[in-house]
């Protein structure tokens, strides 16, 4: 049952990304092109996604467990770490260069051509390497 819900949520997420234009890399780059031909419409996508989640967090706050069991994830401590800032900055650079963030990169795998596949493989490789690279850098300093 948990798997089935996860499958449905993933499918809904994928179709949402697709129909809202988040997999259209030119549109995403247009939304980031604040100093050029700015296309602000994707702000409504983010806003529209935040709304149901705001309600969901309200509902979740009154429960101790999820409906299928398991704890509701606690808020992480509010610490702003250098990793958060540097990581998000790096992510923004990659997002701007390509127009793809992780969700849409997966949602568009079936129609993104070889270009989408190259991006996806590079992204996965970096995800695998990140813990080791960070540990090595920490040892070096």
């Amino acid at each position: 049952m948990r798997g089935l819900i996860a499958l449905a949520a993933g499918g809904l997420f994928g179709l949402g990304l697709l129909t809202s234009g988040m997999t259209d890399t030119a549109k995403v780059q247009g939304w980031l092109d604040v100093f050029g031909a700015w296309d602000p419409t994707l702000a409504f996508v983010l806003g529209g996604a935040i709304l149901p989640m705001t309600i969901a967090w309200r509902v979740a706050a009154r429960r101790r467990e999820a409906l299928l069991g398991g704890p509701i994830p606690a808020p992480s401590d509010a610490k702003i770490t250098p990793q958060l800032a540097v990581g998000s900055g790096l992510f923004g650079v990659g997002w701007g260069l390509s127009g793809l963030c992780p969700g849409p990169a997966m949602a568009s795998l079936s129609f993104g051509g070889w270009q989408g596949l190259v991006f996806f493989v590079a992204m996965c490789a970096a995800m695998m390497a990140q813990p080791r690279v960070t540990a090595a850098l920490a040892r070096g300093t």
């Binding site: 998000s88 923004g92 990659g94 969700g103 190259v118 970096a126 995800m127 990140q130």
Partner: peptide, 20 residues
């Protein structure tokens, strides 16, 4: 493509999250 993929993969894991 490769540079962007590496930045997105490394950055989102370091920051523990992305757009979603």
């Amino acid at each position: 493509l490769i540079a962007a993929g590496l930045c997105v993969g490394f950055g989102t894991r370091l920051a523990n999250g992305c757009t979603s």
